[in-house]
Amino acid sequence: MRRRWQFFVDLFDETEAGTSLALFRISIGLVALYSLLSIAVAGLVEPLWTSVEYGGMRTLGGNWLVQYLGGPKPGLIWTLWGIAVTTSLAFVLGLGGPISGRIITFVMLQSYNALVTMNPLGSGSYDALLSNGLWVLVFADATATLSVHSRLREGRWRSETLVSAWPRYVLIVQLLLMYSLTGLQKSAHIWTPGGGYTALYWVLQDLGWTRYDFSEMAAWVTPLLRFGTAVTWHWEQISLLLLFWFYCRYTADRGGRVRHWVLRRDWRVGWAFVGVSLHIGILLLMNVGPFSWVSMSYYVLLWTPAEWLSHGRRARKFWRGRVARFGQSRAKKMS
């Protein structure tokens, strides 16, 4: 028992560079900005988030914060919206150090959450995934690198400052939990082999969610949709297994045949490839808001900062080689 407890104490004591967390910060910050600005551009801030007596489309109550501040009136809603937009921008830019950066994140979370929980009929899973990410970042040093803070403190955008790694671990669990639990709740017969894996066909029949009316076209591509259903259903359900790969990697020095077998392949690459493919499909076919963008923002956390730096170096080397070869071939042609 003592040894197991020590395992968690040591795990949460790990530190690393802040690159992965910073990339995640920038990515979900941009999604939050899009979410807030798009609703204002569409002229829906007051209709969706104020109560019917103030021009809104429904009778609303609001969460604890809205109720405490006097209820969903236009003045309060626009103030919360303004605070959410300003703090989101500061969050993306990485303003504020370990303390002020966290305060900015906390204020952004509370204002965003107060708005999106106002009207549950107009809120999506992406709001929940976004606010879950923000809450963990309140405890993380997410502005340590790739931030204005780093630029002001060290004179450069990138910093080697070490930050706690546990927020990244917690966010990975959150992402995989979301996928597995949504997969396990897809219990309708049509998601399963017994139902012929036809769920995606029926999803595309619903005009409420599709980007365009695909209902007739879907009837001609049913084998493809069945394949998509099968991949989605199984992939979502087994997503949590990726944690086992992380465990094996973390304890790689313990050896053992199972661990060796598991670590022969990088499970993250295959998992992320399927995930990104599914999200591209969702983006093309459906209008469910920025759900795919929030989900994919979490993907950057699957790789350590050291791996991101190594990927970056390899990508730079690859492009330099390409550009050089292009230059040489052009020079040859000219001569």
Partner: peptide, 20 residues
């Protein structure tokens, strides 16, 4: 409620057979 960490990932668990 206070931290915005609500969970609930029922997404297309039973696609509807009616639309409008």
């Amino acid at each position: 409620d206070y931290t915005g960490t609500r969970q609930g990932w029922t997404m297309f668990s039973g696609p509807r057979r009616r639309t409008g």
